[in-house]
């Protein structure tokens, strides 16, 4: 229905366009940054353009890609293990009250505990190798997988379960026809939140204890006063997180188009 774009830009129409407003917000942010860094930033604050240039160089630098690879190996392993172990655990807890009761106190503790605290213990026992980093990522991610899977199982409509029972389905049929599809949106939502946490765990362990990968690179930039690269690296890490989450979002939309996404997060 909307009429063809006239030659004169309609300012009201522009102000109703999401992308225009986002671009406007970004431009304002960049401008303030640029002006501030130029006028008052001094040695420690690179300007927006310096940072952008640094990002360009970093994207062409094998050193940076190497760092991302090193970090992400730990991330992928830890996250994968969290999903593989967390989903069955969540199903168990959602379906069997006793299991739920037994595991729940530990989940509650894990949910409020700043897990970074375990990093020193891992260093002591396992050293600063890959295993330590994988375990940190794993422990950051698994809680969200379990909690969301459990919530997904619980929110499955009881009357649907009764319905398939009445048609003669056994426990297996109940799972296959109702619980698994019914909880899928929540499970995927949990996977999404867990992925974000996995990236966080990956960054934290490298920043706090094991100076390798991207965290290590950041600390190196900081130590050598390469501030534009430091800022650029921060941007790149955030970008990685966003790209990964966009991928999960896409999978989510394809796999469970009927679901409205609500997830438990922390």
């Amino acid at each position: 229905m909307s009429s063809a774009e006239g030659p004169a830009l309609n300012i009201d129409r522009l102000l109703d366009s999401r992308w225009f407003l986002r671009a406007l917000a970004f431009a304002a942010f960049a401008l303030v940054w640029q002006v501030y860094a130029t006028a008052a930033g001094g040695f420690f604050v690179p300007t927006f353009t310096e940072t952008a240039a640094a990002i360009g160089r970093q994207l062409a630098s094998p050193e940076v890609w190497q760092a991302f690879a090193t970090s992400n190996i730990a991330m992928v392993l830890g996250f994968g293990l969290a999903v593989v172990i967390g989903i069955p655990l969540g199903f168990l807890m959602g379906r069997f009250r006793l299991a739920e009761r037994a595991i729940n106190p530990y989940l509650n503790i894990l949910l409020v505990t700043p897990l970074a605290g375990i990093i020193p213990l891992l260093m002591m026992s396992l050293g600063i190798g890959l295993a330590s980093r994988v375990i940190v990522v794993w422990s950051f991610a698994i809680v969200m997988v379990v909690v969301n899977t459990r919530a997904g199982v619980r929110q499955v409509d009881r009357s649907l379960i009764d319905m398939v029972r009445l048609f003669g389905a056994g426990e297996l049929g109940v799972w296959r026809r109702v619980i698994l599809p019914g909880s899928l949106p929540a499970v995927l939502a949990g996977v999404r939140v867990a992925l974000g946490r996995a990236v966080t765990g990956m960054v934290i362990v490298e920043l706090v204890m094991v100076s390798v990968g991207i965290g290590g690179l950041i600390l190196r930039y900081q130590a050598f006063f390469r501030f534009a690269e430091l800022y650029g690296m921060v941007v790149l890490i955030i970008l990685e997180a966003l790209i990964l989450l966009a991928i999960v979002d896409w999978v989510q939309r394809k796999a469970t188009p009927w679901a409205s996404m609500t997830s438990i997060r922390d």
Partner: peptide, 24 residues
């Protein structure tokens, strides 16, 4: 409309990456 993606981005970003910046 102007800010939602940035807020979401900041929510999912590993916030500790900003610590080195604050430290400098």
């Amino acid at each position: 409309m102007a800010l939602d993606i940035y807020v979401r981005a900041m929510l999912t970003a590993p916030s500790l990456v900003f610590a080195p910046i604050f430290f400098t």
